[in-house]
Amino acid sequence: MSRRRSLHLAAGLLLVAVVVGGVLLSYLWLPFAPDDTSGGRLAPPGGDHLLGTDKLGRDLFTQLLIGGRIAIGTALGAVTVGGVLGVSFGLVAGFATRWLDDAAAVLLDILIAFPTLLLAMLIVAGAGASLATAVIAIGLAMAAVVARLTRVLVKQILARDYITAARVAGISWPRIVVSHVLPNIAPTVSVNLALQAGLAVLAEASLSYLGLGTPPPNASWGRMLYEAQATVLVAPVAALAPGIALVALVIGVNLTADGLRDFTDPRRSR
């Protein structure tokens, strides 16, 4: 493995670990109750309130930790939805007859032409704004991208000689999928899913910022930034901390995905 990539992997895992650590901590201990307004409005950082309080008097560090739950939850949830649906659809399309496969390819291209955020907004329009809606919507948009990748990979693998050999040896298609196709597409698909996880976190933050994601009083980082915008001159930390947390998590996820690429494609290591 190249030194640069292992450096990326280490830095990425460290950033992700800090956020995940904060989230785990939030389940064991919180500096204040989420709805505790005893600190007074817009208290400055320092003292009891590490990052100060918001305009309702709630502790910002507490909200930041809770926002981490939403960010990590979105990433995991969307990757699960997108991964399961995308890989299943991609597998079916990859195995399908010519005509059905062409139709699937065109459908996926059209779905991908709708940017993730627009597709998510469309689903929120019907189902109402909530964290679950946002996660499912982002996961569905992700599924289209994952399905297109899976379909191409499956087609490449099905053309290999060892698949023909397995068929000749009388192995059934389901067993070929489990023992040959899935293990071979897994590395590339997981790197892609990791990259998509970063995008999912950004998409949820954008939805929440627009008021179309997690409804109050839950402190999504996107919502925190929206609320901080009005008081940015009085309480600049409130507008900085959630943004920095977001960027750190997304960079962490991206760097991890970048570093993992070495394991998936040995030719890339130099």
């Binding site: 910022y209 996107g222 507008a239 977001l246 991206n254």
Partner: peptide, 21 residues
Amino acid sequence: QLGIAVPAFWVGLLLITVFAL
């Protein structure tokens, strides 16, 4: 690498803070 991880609305918020406010 930093740029692709930054949400657009946050960049907007920071620019407003510096140049407008």
